[in-house]
Measured scan of single mutants.
Amino acid sequence: MSIQHFRVALIPFFAAFCLPVFAHPETLVKVKDAEDQLGARVGYIELDLNSGKILESFRPEERFPMMSTFKVLLCGAVLSRVDAGQEQLGRRIHYSQNDLVEYSPVTEKHLTDGMTVRELCSAAITMSDNTAANLLLTTIGGPKELTAFLHNMGDHVTRLDRWEPELNEAIPNDERDTTMPAAMATTLRKLLTGELLTLASRQQLIDWMEADKVAGPLLRSALPAGWFIADKSGAGERGSRGIIAALGPDGKPSRIVVIYTTGSQATMDERNRQIAEIGASLIKHW
Rank of each mutant, 00 (worst) to 15 (best):
residue 3 I to M: 08
residue 8 V to I: 13
residue 9 A to F: 12
residue 20 P to D: 15
residue 22 F to N: 09
residue 22 F to Q: 10
residue 25 P to L: 10
residue 28 L to I: 03
residue 30 K to D: 05
residue 35 E to P: 01
residue 38 L to F: 08
residue 41 R to L: 09
residue 41 R to A: 09
residue 43 G to N: 00
residue 44 Y to C: 03
residue 47 L to S: 06
residue 48 D to V: 05
residue 49 L to A: 09
residue 50 N to H: 12
residue 57 S to K: 12
residue 61 E to P: 01
residue 61 E to A: 13
residue 64 F to E: 00
residue 66 M to V: 13
residue 78 V to H: 03
residue 79 L to W: 01
residue 81 R to D: 05
residue 82 V to C: 11
residue 85 G to K: 11
residue 86 Q to P: 05
residue 91 R to K: 10
residue 93 I to K: 04
residue 94 H to F: 13
residue 96 S to F: 12
residue 97 Q to K: 14
residue 97 Q to C: 08
residue 103 Y to A: 06
residue 104 S to D: 02
residue 106 V to G: 06
residue 106 V to W: 07
residue 107 T to E: 01
residue 107 T to V: 08
residue 110 H to L: 08
residue 115 M to A: 06
residue 118 R to W: 15
residue 118 R to S: 15
residue 126 T to K: 07
residue 130 N to G: 05
residue 132 A to T: 02
residue 146 L to W: 05
residue 146 L to K: 00
residue 148 A to N: 14
residue 149 F to K: 07
residue 151 H to S: 09
residue 153 M to A: 14
residue 155 D to V: 01
residue 158 T to C: 03
residue 160 L to G: 04
residue 170 A to D: 08
residue 180 M to I: 12
residue 183 A to M: 10
residue 184 M to P: 00
residue 190 K to L: 10
residue 193 T to H: 14
residue 196 L to E: 13
residue 197 L to I: 08
residue 200 A to M: 11
residue 200 A to W: 07
residue 205 L to H: 01
residue 206 I to R: 12
residue 210 E to D: 09
residue 211 A to E: 14
residue 213 K to P: 04
residue 216 G to M: 10
residue 217 P to A: 14
residue 221 S to C: 11
residue 223 L to N: 03
residue 224 P to R: 06
residue 225 A to T: 15
residue 225 A to E: 14
residue 228 F to V: 07
residue 231 D to R: 03
residue 232 K to P: 00
residue 234 G to Y: 02
residue 235 A to D: 02
residue 236 G to S: 07
residue 237 E to N: 14
residue 237 E to G: 14
residue 240 S to Q: 07
residue 240 S to T: 07
residue 242 G to L: 00
residue 248 G to T: 01
residue 249 P to Q: 09
residue 251 G to F: 08
residue 252 K to C: 12
residue 255 R to A: 04
residue 255 R to I: 06
residue 259 I to P: 00
residue 264 S to T: 12
residue 264 S to C: 10
residue 265 Q to W: 10
residue 266 A to W: 06
residue 268 M to K: 06
residue 269 D to K: 12
residue 280 A to K: 15
residue 280 A to H: 14
residue 282 L to W: 02
residue 282 L to K: 02
residue 285 H to N: 14
